[in-house]
């Protein structure tokens, strides 16, 4: 199956920061969680995909098309939600949508009105009077109203209360059910992605540390907890990262079966969260 989004050896240099030849791809019909700490390169990568930044080296293909050569054609099929509001705050959403809608060939007013009604967004109030959650819901309504095949979302849930976050995640799950739409969802709130992501890509200092399915990730990594005396040379080769306290240690290990056999029931092995994986993979040993 052809990837809906494919990045190959993408390079972008800034003073003091570099997107360092990153590659990953997303298949149609899946949600990819794009995780990493603040300043790791998530937004820069998304801006490169959206052509808001100029690519220096490498290749970005969306729907199998070169992102620069077929920019307008691609953007007809992309819905986007960014962490900051970019709509005109002095306009009402009715005015704003009247300006935006004609740019999309497949704009569907019925879908739009359905989402506006569902989200309870007031049509006659200026966007500047909206809460952050309402602005995010409006952005989502616009993104979903032109039959987008790829949703690109940059930290859409940051700064939102748990109820609105949950509502947005429910909608994303619904959208994905049609099997046609894919989502690239960047976030440092990994619990959101624990819930909805099919694939996870971790970026750290402009480098992709892994890009894999969530199942493979949880098969590969385990969280181990035990007494500090167990932190011997035998265990260290399996440790991705660990932290010690006066009561013992906790660490992320690969090869669960081997570690289990080695520790012989003297330590606790648990399924890690995405946050554990992100933390230990990016900070390394002795956190």
């Amino acid at each position: 199956m052809e990837s809906i989004l494919e990045l190959r050896n993408v390079v972008k240099n800034f003073t003091g920061f570099k997107i360092n030849g990153i590659s990953f791809s997303l298949e149609p019909g899946y949600i990819m969680g794009f995780i990493g700490a603040n300043g790791s390169g998530k937004t820069t990568t998304i801006k490169l995909i959206m052509n808001l930044l100029h690519l220096e080296m490498g290749e970005i293909k969306v729907f199998g098309l070169d992102s620069r050569q077929h920019e307008q054609q691609i953007k007809q099929r992309i819905g986007f939600v960014y962490d900051d509001n970019h709509f005109y705050e002095e306009l009402t959403i009715t005015q704003m949508t009247k300006v935006l809608a004609p740019f999309y060939k497949k704009w569907d007013w019925n879908t739009y009105n359905r989402y506006i009604h569902r989200f309870g967004l007031p049509s006659n109030k200026k966007i500047k009077t909206f809460s952050r959650g309402m602005k995010m819901k409006y952005a989502l309504a616009v993104a979903l109203s032109h039959k987008a095949e790829l949703l690109i979302m940059d930290e859409p849930t940051s700064g939102l209360d748990p109820i609105v976050r949950s509502e947005i995640l429910d909608i994303l799950s619904e959208v994905i059910l049609d099997e046609r739409c894919s989502v690239l969802f960047s976030s440092h709130i990994t619990s959101d992605l624990d819930r909805i992501a099919d694939y996870v890509t971790l970026i750290h200092n402009g480098t992709i540390l892994f890009s894999t399915s969530k199942e493979e990730l949880f098969e590969k990594y385990s969280l181990v907890k035990g007494e500090r005396s167990l932190l011997g040379e035998n265990l260290r080769p399996y440790l991705v990262g660990y932290r010690e306290s006066q009561f013992g240690f906790e660490g992320l290990v690969t090869d669960k079966a081997a570690v289990q056999a080695m520790l012989n029931g003297n330590a606790l092995l648990e399924r890690p969260t995405l946050e554990d994986i992100m933390l230990y993979c990016t900070r390394g040993r002795a956190v």
């Binding site: 052509n51 953007k75 007809q76 992309i78 900051d84 002095e90 999309y104």
Partner: peptide, 15 residues
């Protein structure tokens, strides 16, 4: 107004 609303990001993300 364009600058205040950071609208370049919006228009350049759209078709």
């Amino acid at each position: 107004w364009e600058e205040k609303n950071n609208s370049d990001t919006l228009w350049n993300s759209m078709p």
